[in-house]
């Protein structure tokens, strides 16, 4: 099912072109990652999808409808970046209002407020006002807000930025738990996090889609990533390249090697571990595949 379709989409802020002629076609299913450096256009793309801003050129469809369409409202939830809740009202009052605006009765809206706050482990904060919350708690409340009404699509703009590891994990677990009935589109700088959550990855740079990859897609060649402790990288490289079925070996970072091999190879992982043992290399990690970082930034 078509989720998001952008055709020749551009957005300009004065003379600055934030999004440059983007074409994108995403389907419902597993969480989708939106990756890119600061200023790549991720938040602009989210803002366009949510109808906060309007395109300078091109078209957008979400579930086949233009952003802001009344029928979309019950289908989409979002964590917008840099948005703050009303400081005058408690979380319960605000989340209940949002639920009522979506069509729930006052009673059902109160229950919904409690339900979504429970999901982000903040049920105790129901009567608190946003000004009394820490940054991490505010973010979790904003995520709770995105879950109101169980939308089919949830856009999360940097959901774990600035929050502690325990809460970041809670959010990741929540996304994983809900992703069988909701499609998440998650933007983040944390590639390790996205790798654990997402299958499809859209890489934006300078307002353009540079890559769109599926981490589970089968390719003509396959990869192992081997990370070692305190070795001479050049020596390791030359030894690894001599292994049968190995096509190419690259140093991804210090003491980390990405080994490209033919799919027909059998037990190469066993051979790698034996090699480590024979050479006296202490390995830290043997990964079947490449990290998202290596996939996106491989030369």
């Amino acid at each position: 099912m078509s989720l998001i379709k952008c055709q020749q989409l551009s957005r300009r802020y004065g003379s600055h072109l934030a999004l440059d002629n983007i074409n994108l076609d995403l389907t419902t299913g597993q969480p989708i990652a939106l990756v890119g450096p600061n200023g790549a256009g991720k938040t602009t793309l989210f803002s366009l999808l949510l109808g906060y801003i309007h395109p300078s050129a091109g078209s957008i469809e979400v579930f086949g409808l233009p952003p802001g369409h009344p029928q979309l409202r019950s289908k989409i939830g979002a964590l917008p970046q840099d948005a703050k809740l009303d400081p005058d009202f408690t979380l319960e009052q605000q989340l209940s209002l949002f639920a009522q605006l979506r069509g729930m009765s006052a009673k059902a809206a109160k229950q919904e407020a409690l339900r979504v706050l429970t999901l982000v482990d903040l049920a105790d904060s129901l009567k608190q006002k946003p000004t009394t919350l820490s940054h991490g708690m505010s973010k979790r409340v904003a995520i709770a807000q995105a879950l109101i009404g169980e939308p089919e699509l949830i856009l999360l703009d940097e959901p774990t930025a600035g929050i502690d590891p325990a809460n970041a994990r809670l959010i990741r677990d929540l996304i994983s738990k809900l992703s069988d009935r909701t499609t998440f589109v998650v933007s983040s700088h944390n590639l390790d996090e996205l790798e654990r959550l997402c299958d499809q990855v859209v890489f934006l740079e300078r307002g353009q889609v540079k890559q769109q990859v599926s981490l589970s897609a089968t390719t003509e060649t396959q990869y192992f990533t081997l990370q070692l402790q305190a070795v001479d990288d050049q020596t390791v490289l030359s030894v690894l390249r001599q292994l049968p079925d190995v096509l190419q070996v690259n140093v991804a970072s210090q003491h980390a090697f990405v080994i490209e091999y033919q799919p027909s190879a059998t037990a190469l992982d066993v051979a790698l571990l034996q090699l480590c043992h024979q050479q006296g290399w202490r390995y830290r990690l043997l990964l079947n595949g490449r990290s998202l970082e290596d996939t996106l930034f491989a030369q």
Partner: peptide, 19 residues
């Protein structure tokens, strides 16, 4: 003030602009 604070970003997810 609400537009500057971003509060309308939350509200506009749940209600139409006309509302």
């Amino acid at each position: 003030d609400d537009i500057q604070r971003g509060t309308f970003r939350f509200l506009s997810l749940h209600a139409s602009r006309i509302a």
